[in-house]
Computed example of a mutant assay.
Amino acid sequence: MRLALFIKRKPLFPQTLHPLSRRTFSAANPLSAASPLNPDQPEPPPPSPENATSPEHTHIAATPPNNPLIYPPSPSPHHTDLPSFLAHASRTNLDPASTVYVGTHFEYTAIQSLSRYGLVLRRVGGVSDGGIDLLGTWPSLPLPPPPSSSSSALSGQGSPLLRVLAQCKAVQRPRPHLIRELEGAFAAAPVGWRGRSGVVGLLVTEKPATKGIREALGRSQWPMGFVACSRDGRVEQLLWNRRAEEEGLEGVEVRLKYLEDAGRDLVLTRKGKALAPFVEGRQVEG
């Protein structure tokens, strides 16, 4: 008999991440203890017009939420998912230790792992990609329909979709500068993902967030989240800032799921129900 036990965990972070931003995390990693945040950190100088990356200093034309999404072309005609990439790597004798192999493998692994939480992502990284590796939507978290319209061409079911852009970093120790790079990716996003609303950015790395990453994420005025995903596809941490909550993650919680024969796993829930995963392009209700 297979038994499953859900345990709701309270966020491990204090309500105020930083005295300047007043941002809060919506969810924290229940698998490891969080380091206390430093409330006495000195106030950083205001960003200059040359290097400002916050929404107040970056002017981006918003994409109407009911426009159909047009994805950039795939960076490779030889593979579109992890199995086809592994087959291609085997045919071409691609060195598993090369940066191309490691980076591409991690991107496809992230796509496969995040589909369990309802995200539908495509690999788009390549030359002039603006630092964006993955683009897609989160159909499990539909946005409220626009006040002036009762339907949306994005979902076909009356609600526009929450759009997602992601950067994948196969690094052993993620550092705060990666959050700044993700902020810059919003400005470089293609038309369908451009704007300040209805879009969430994700930073996906191999290791859990450091204290510096958590503080930078909490201070950011862009809607962003962080995912720790191992090379074998095990998601070990999911967290996001207040702006991401405002753009579509309101009410989403992280829970631990214990299985008698499979250890433990992270589950995203909303209103007490697990978000439906996507398998081979279709949503599977739990």
Rank of each mutant, 00 (worst) to 15 (best):
R242D: 14
T99M: 08
V235K: 01
P45D: 13
A89I: 10
Y101M: 02
L134Q: 07
Y108S: 01
I132W: 12
Q112F: 03
V164W: 02
P147C: 01
L217W: 08
P190R: 07
W138G: 00
P30G: 00
A34G: 13
P14K: 03
R219F: 01
L143S: 06
W222C: 06
P30S: 01
G248S: 05
Y117P: 01
L165S: 06
G201K: 11
V191H: 15
P55T: 08
R270W: 05
P223E: 04
S151P: 00
P19R: 14
E183G: 02
F13W: 09
L119A: 11
G263Q: 08
A185L: 04
N241Q: 08
T80S: 14
A189N: 08
P39L: 15
T205W: 07
S151Y: 06
Y108V: 00
A228H: 12
S159I: 00
M224W: 08
Q15K: 14
L86A: 06
A276V: 02
V204A: 08
Y101P: 05
P139E: 07
T137W: 00
L5R: 15
W222S: 02
W138E: 00
W138F: 07
S98V: 03
I111S: 00
M1V: 15
R173A: 15
P190I: 04
P277V: 03
G248Y: 03
L268I: 07
T58E: 11
E236R: 15
R175T: 13
E285R: 12
E247D: 10
L31V: 00
E107C: 09
G201H: 11
L5A: 14
S155F: 09
G281T: 06
G251Q: 09
L37P: 09
S115I: 01
A4R: 13
Q167R: 09
L182T: 08
T99Y: 07
R116Q: 12
I7G: 07
N38E: 14
T137P: 02
K8A: 12
N67D: 14
Q237C: 03
F6I: 14
R116L: 12
L94E: 14
Q15D: 15
L141E: 07
I132G: 01
R219G: 06
L268F: 06
R180E: 15
G126P: 06
P19V: 13
G201C: 11
L249V: 04
V284L: 13
L17R: 10
